[in-house]
């Protein structure tokens, strides 16, 4: 089938992007346990990426494309990190680390967003309503992750940077 390699490429990009989002958001949470809003919201949003992974794997399978349905879980390192960050999080340096990590999350989420764009554009051109519907469901969640990273960075940057 013509275009199947392109579809495989787009799905692979989405899968890679969302897999990274799960692990990055969970890592962000673990590392910044003492910044409570970051911790809880990052974990809530990691769940959205898990859902996106599950749903995209299903639709990909319908198109004979195998994506691993196993979504990453928090590793032992994250748990260790969580304990460390609670202990260390009450010092000033983590403020700058948090800005770095939010910046990184924003960039990863943006890459994932571009992957969803490519998948949706492929679906438009190929008249594939299943994939269009998938992108319509999942891409907005990814965009919300981007907006959150931007909001938190904007909120925390002035105090963090002027106090260094």
């Amino acid at each position: 089938m013509s275009g199947h390699a392109g579809l495989r490429y787009a799905f692979a990009r989405v899968h890679h992007g969302e897999t990274e989002m799960v692990s990055h958001l969970e890592h962000l949470a673990a590392k910044h346990r003492a910044d409570h809003e970051i911790y809880f919201v990052a974990l809530d949003m990691a769940e959205w990426s898990r859902t996106n992974l599950r749903q995209s794997a299903q639709v990909a399978a319908d198109h004979d494309i195998g994506l691993s349905q196993r979504s990453p879980g928090p590793g032992p390192l994250d748990r260790l990190q969580e304990g460390m960050s609670t202990l260390l999080g009450r010092r000033p340096e983590p403020g700058l680390l948090l800005l770095e990590d939010l910046r990184d999350a924003y960039l990863r989420a943006s890459q994932t967003s571009l992957a969803w764009e490519m998948l949706a554009q492929h679906a438009q051109a190929a008249h594939d309503t299943d994939i269009l519907e998938l992108a319509g469901r999942c891409h907005p969640q990814n965009l919300r992750q981007i907006r959150w990273c931007n909001t938190m960075l904007k909120t925390l940057a002035p105090q963090t940077l002027t106090s260094l």
């Binding site: 003492a34 409570h36 403020g95 904007k154 909120t155 105090q159 963090t160 106090s163």
Partner: peptide
């Protein structure tokens, strides 16, 4: 007016971090 006014929980967080 570059960010929303800082909320109480964040004020205490900044105090905790020392800024």
């Amino acid at each position: 007016h570059y960010t929303p006014p800082t909320h109480a929980m964040q004020i205490f967080r900044y105090a905790e971090q020392g800024s």
